[in-house]
Design a protein around this nucleic acid. Structure first.
Lengths: 339, 339
DNA sequence: TTGAAAGCGCTAACAT
DNA sequence: ATGTTAGCGCTTTCAA
C-alpha cells in the first residue's frame, strides 16, 4: 500500500489536516519548523497524493477525456501529440477513447468520461453521423456540466467551442493554384457530403472558380470518403469519365490513392496530370513525386484545443468560441502548368 | 450535479446500501419488487455510478495506463489501437502518456499512474536509456504493487511480463531471403546498439549468415536510429563505402530513407540494389516500389498485451511471462536476384 | 498555530 | 429483506 497522509501524520505526531495544509501550500500559518518536518518526512517516505481521493474530495480530477475516430490516422495522432504536450505542462492526464468512427461509441465515451469526472472532453465526432444522431449530440452536450470542445469536425447548432482549420481558405488556395497554372478542368475528390469540413472545402472551391469567372461543373465532383482506397476508386472514375487535367483530393490519403491509379495507367505526375492534396501528412517527402498540398497546422491545433479546454475548466462561464486556424499552401512537385 | 445513489435512496425511501446492492447485482435477497423499483428509478433518473467514488471504495479503477514513446509512430498507434479495442470490451479505460522517447517521462508517468491507482501499466520504454537509467526501471518496478507489462522493448533483469515479436527470426527471414537471391554483400542499417531489439535482430542476421557458411562482415553494419533521416544518411554511407548489392534496414522507415537516397543517385530498386525492411508499416502499397519486409503483428500485439494486463490484474500472482509473437515475411517488389 | 469533524459517493462487513 | 456503520484518502470549514 502506498504512503498516505495518515502515515505522515502518525510519523510526525501531527494531524492529517495540518499535513494536508502544508503539503498543499495553503496559506494557513503553520509554524515554519513543523512545515519543514512535514516536508521532510513526506519526501523521506516518498509520499505522493492519491489522485483518486483528491478527485473525490475536490471534484476535480485533472483529467481530460479525448475522443477521436482513429488514432492510427496521422491527423488524429498528431493532434493527440499536441494535446498531450500541452496537457502535460499542467500536470493533467489524458484519457483516450478511440471510436473507429462509430458515433455510438462517441456517446458511450462521453457518458463514461462523465462518470469518471473528467474535467473536460475534447471530441472529434465520428464520421458515421446521420441527422438523427446529430441531434443526440445536442442532448448529450446540453446536459453535460463539463465543458466539451469539438475539434476538426464542426457540428452545427452545438453550443460548444470548436477548433478547426479554415477549410474554405485551404480549398481556395488549392484551386487558385491550379487555375494559375492554366488548369480549368479540375476534378474534385471530396469527403462524405454530410460532413461539415467537406462542405466547407467545397465552398472554397466554388469561391475560387467563381472568382475566376468559371462555371461550376458538378460532373467533375466525385464523392470519396477520405480513405486511400476511395482515392484509387474515384480517380479511376475520373480517368474514365472526364478529361480533367488536374485533381484536387480533399485529403492527402486520397491523393496518394490517385498516385496509385495514375501509376497503374502509366500516367506521369505532374506532366500528364496535376495532383493537389489536403492535410500535409508526414510522408510527403517519402514519395517519389512530393505532393503539393494544403497544410493543416495539426499539432498546433492540438496545443490550441488543449489550451482552450484548460481555459474552460478554469473559467466555466467563458463564452464558447469558434476558432479557425489558418492553413498553409505547400508547393511541391505534383503540379505543373498545363501544356 | 449528477444523480447519486443517495438520490435514488431518497426517491425510493430505501437505504443507500440496498440501492447499491441491487444496482451491483449482489446476491443479497432483496425483494423482487424493490429490485424493480430501484432499477426503474435509477434508469428514470439516468443514474450512472461515479467511477471516482467506486475507485476509492474498491481500490480498483478499471483504468489501464499506457506509456509509449511516440503516438505518431505507426508502430505505437497501431499498438494503441489493439490495446484500446481489447480494453474496451471489458469496460475499462486507457490513460495515455507520450514520452517522446525521454525515459525521465517514463518514470514520471509511472509515478503519476500509480498515484491515479491505475490497475495495470503497459510500458514501451523510451529509447534514450543508459545503463544507469535501466537500473532505475528496476527500482520503480520492484516497488510497484500494480502489474507492469513491457512491450516491444525488452529490458533485461526486469521482473515483469514482456510481449514482443521474435526479432531474431524476423531478421533471419530477411537475410535468408536475400541470400537465396544470390546476394552476399548485404549492408545492414541497424537501430541503436544498446536497444535490445536491435541486438536481437543482429543475432538473427548472424544466424542466417553462419548457416549459409558466410563470414560476418562488421564493415557492412551501419548503426541508425530507426528514423527516416538516418535511413537516408546511412544509405549514403553505404553507397560511398561498400559494394553492397542489398540493404536490410531494421525498420521500414529507414528503408524508405534508403529509397530516397537511391532515387537521388538514380539507382533503381530492385534492379540496381535490393531493399528489405522490418515492421510492415501501413503505406507499403503507396510506394512506387512496394517494399519487401518483415511484418510485425502489431495490432495483435496490442490485443495480447491488453489481455495479459487484464489477466495480471485479475490474478496478481500469476507468474510473469515472456511472449514472443511470430513475424511474417512479406514478399513484395523491392528485392531481386543478383545479376 | 493546530486539530476535530464532516463530507466527497461509493462499498462491504455486520447488524437487525 | 433491509439498514447501520465504518471506511477508502483526501479537503475544508470551523473551532480551539
Amino acid at each position: 500500500m502506498a504512503v498516505t497522509l495518515k502515515d505522515i501524520a502518525r510519523e510526525t505526531n501531527l494531524s492529517v489536516t495540518t499535513v494536508s495544509l502544508v503539503l498543499n501550500n495553503k496559506p494557513n500559518r503553520v509554524a515554519e519548523s513543523t512545515r519543514k518536518l512535514i516536508r521532510e518526512t513526506a519526501s523521506r517516505l516518498n509520499y505522493y497524493p492519491n489522485q483518486i481521493a483528491v478527485g473525490l474530495a475536490k471534484q476535480v480530477t485533472n483529467t481530460i477525456g479525448l475522443i477521436i475516430p482513429d488514432i492510427s490516422n496521422y491527423f488524429f495522432n498528431q493532434l493527440a501529440l499536441g494535446i498531450d504536450d500541452e496537457i502535460n505542462k499542467s500536470n493533467r492526464a489524458i484519457i483516450l477513447s478511440n471510436t473507429s468512427d462509430n458515433c455510438q461509441r462517441d456517446f458511450k465515451s462521453i457518458q463514461m468520461f462523465q462518470a469518471r469526472s473528467v474535467d473536460a472532453i475534447i471530441l472529434a465526432v465520428a464520421a458515421d453521423n446521420t441527422p438523427e444522431t446529430l441531434n443526440k449530440y445536442q442532448d448529450f452536450i446540453k446536459e453535460s456540466r463539463i465543458p466539451i470542445i469539438t475539434i476538426d469536425r464542426y457540428v452545427p447548432f452545438l453550443n460548444c467551442s470548436c477548433i478547426k482549420v479554415n477549410n474554405q481558405k485551404g480549398a481556395y488556395y488549392a484551386i487558385s493554384h491550379l487555375l494559375s497554372l492554366g488548369h480549368t478542368s479540375i476534378a474534385l475528390i471530396t469527403g462524405p457530403s454530410h460532413i461539415r469540413s467537406t462542405q466547407e472545402r467545397l465552398d472554397g472551391c466554388k469561391w475560387a472558380f467563381s472568382e475566376a469567372g468559371l462555371e461550376w461543373n458538378p460532373s467533375l465532383v466525385f464523392e470519396g470518403n477520405y480513405l486511400y482506397s476511395s482515392g484509387i476508386r474515384m480517380s479511376e472514375n475520373i480517368l474514365q469519365n472526364t478529361k480533367a487535367t488536374a485533381i484536387f483530393a480533399f485529403n492527402d490519403l486520397m491523393a496518394y490513392g490517385v498516385y496509385y491509379t495514375l501509376r497503374q495507367h502509366g500516367l506521369k505526375i505532374p506532366n500528364d496530370i496535376s495532383v493537389v492534396g489536403f492535410d500535409d501528412i508526414a510522408f510527403a517527402d517519402m514519395m517519389e513525386v512530393p505532393l503539393t498540398t494544403v497544410k493543416q497546422p495539426i499539432y498546433t491545433m492540438g496545443l490550441e484545443v488543449a489550451k482552450r479546454a484548460i481555459l474552460e475548466i478554469e473559467h466555466p462561464d467563458s463564452p464558447k468560441q469558434n476558432i479557425n486556424l489558418e492553413p498553409e499552401f505547400i508547393l511541391r512537385s505534383s503540379t505543373a502548368a498545363i501544356k
